[in-house]
Each structure stands twice: as structure tokens, then as C-alpha cells.
């Protein structure tokens, strides 16, 4: 059973890569989600300038493939004097993608809160800030949560693109293992399984959470 003996030899290297993939995912979410919140309010803002800036950032982030943004940050920015490390440039690129997609999910969630509830809150004399804080945001983000979790899984898989900018994540580890041993089949099957082992339960978790949070609604 050469597959298992090879797999056992590859696994520690791949797990090192997996750790980098996980860190890249978490960093992109850590910076991307708060930014998404700001962009969501920017898109809905009555201020024209704020709205146009937010729409521009979101549309570029969603319109350009993550691979293009990665290349731009790593190979493009040095031309204008900004040099980032591989991990930093990948984080910036994937943060942009995350912020752009999640801003739209959040905006959709926030605007799905029924107008009647907002009127109810206004009629009680609650301020706009209180209506946002107690009525719109708590419900809006719950509505957006399943989409956000689904995106997190896709983002985790998309970190594999960072191998093109020399980040030592799982895909790049698999690639160099393959190049040195020529056991590409074994190494990519194993890498695919490792991505799946994280992604599939994460998807289950998002479905479970969605059910739990919809209990009162």
C-alpha cells in the first residue's frame, strides 16, 4: 500500500501548509468582515460620496477574480513603491474579496428586516441609532449569517490561489512535494481530502446554526 506510506510521509508537510491556509483565511475574515460592515452601511448611505466610494470598492472586489487581486498586490504594487511580503499581499487581496462579497450579503440581510418593525421602533420614539442597534443589526446579520458562513468556506478554498504568490500554504506545499517525488496523484488526492475535511463539516455547521438562529422567526 504505497498510497498510505506516501500519505503518511506527506501529511506533516501538508498539515504545515494547512496551518498557513487557515491563518490566511482567518486574517482575511478578521479584517474583511468589519470592513464589509462599513461598506454595507456605505452602500446604503444617503451621502452620495460615501455611497459611490463604497460601491466602487465592492464592485471591483466582486468583479475582479481573487487571482487577479493576488497578483496585483504581490507583483503589481512594487511598481508604485509598495512592497508587501507574500502573506501580507495575499491577506490584503483576500480581505478585499471578503469585504466586497460580505458587504453585499450584509446589505441584503439588513434590508430584509421588515419595514413595519422599523416603523414600530420609530413610532415608539426610538432614535435611528437605537433602531439600528436593537432592531435592524441583530436581525439583519442573522439573515446574512448563512451566506457569510458559506463564503468563509469558499474563501478557505480560495486561499489555495495564494500559492501563485509564493505563500507557503497547503497547495504550494503539495506542489513542491509533487515536484520532488513525482507522486502528484497521491499528494493532490491527499490535499483535496484535507480541504474537504475542513470544508464539509463547516458547511454542516452553517446549516445547523442557520436552523438554531431561525428558531424564533
Amino acid at each position: 500500500m504505497t498510497f498510505f506510506t506516501d500519505a503518511a510521509a506527506f501529511l506533516p508537510v501538508l498539515l504545515n501548509g494547512l496551518q498557513v491556509s487557515a491563518i490566511l483565511t482567518l486574517l482575511s475574515l478578521l479584517f474583511g468582515l468589519p470592513l464589509a460592515g462599513v461598506l454595507a452601511f456605505g452602500i446604503m448611505s444617503k451621502n452620495r460620496v460615501a455611497r459611490l466610494i463604497a460601491i466602487a470598492i465592492v464592485e471591483v472586489g466582486r468583479g475582479a477574480p481573487a487571482l487577479v487581486l493576488l497578483q496585483l498586490m504581490y507583483f503589481g504594487l512594487p511598481d508604485v513603491g509598495i512592497t508587501l511580503s507574500a502573506l501580507a499581499s495575499a491577506t490584503v487581496a483576500l480581505t478585499w474579496t471578503t469585504a466586497a462579497y460580505c458587504a453585499e450579503y450584509l446589505r441584503g440581510g439588513l434590508s430584509a428586516v421588515p419595514a413595519g418593525e422599523i416603523e414600530g421602533s420609530q413610532a415608539l420614539g426610538m432614535t435611528t441609532a437605537d433602531t439600528l442597534r436593537y432592531i435592524i443589526i441583530p436581525q439583519g446579520w442573522r439573515i446574512a449569517l448563512p451566506s457569510l458562513m458559506g463564503f468563509a468556506v469558499i474563501l478557505f478554498q480560495a486561499t489555495s490561489l495564494a500559492y501563485t504568490v509564493t505563500v507557503q500554504e497547503m497547495m504550494s506545499q503539495a506542489y513542491s512535494l509533487g515536484a520532488s517525488t513525482f507522486k502528484y496523484l497521491t499528494v493532490f488526492v491527499l490535499a483535496g481530502l484535507l480541504y474537504a475535511v475542513i470544508s464539509i463539516p463547516a458547511t454542516w455547521l452553517s446549516v445547523l446554526l442557520e436552523k438554531r438562529m431561525a428558531r424564533h422567526l
Partner: peptide
């Protein structure tokens, strides 16, 4: 505006309670 709204309580056709 808030002073005026505070002096009037409103009840809607569709209740408009906060479901969460």
C-alpha cells in the same frame, strides 16, 4: 420629532412587534 412621537403611542394593523 422624538418629543412628539413620545407623546403618542401607535398600534398598527400588523402589530409590528420585534420577533427576535
Amino acid at each position: 420629532l422624538f418629543a412628539l412621537r413620545r407623546s403618542a403611542g401607535m398600534v398598527f394593523q400588523h402589530f409590528n412587534l420585534f420577533p427576535h
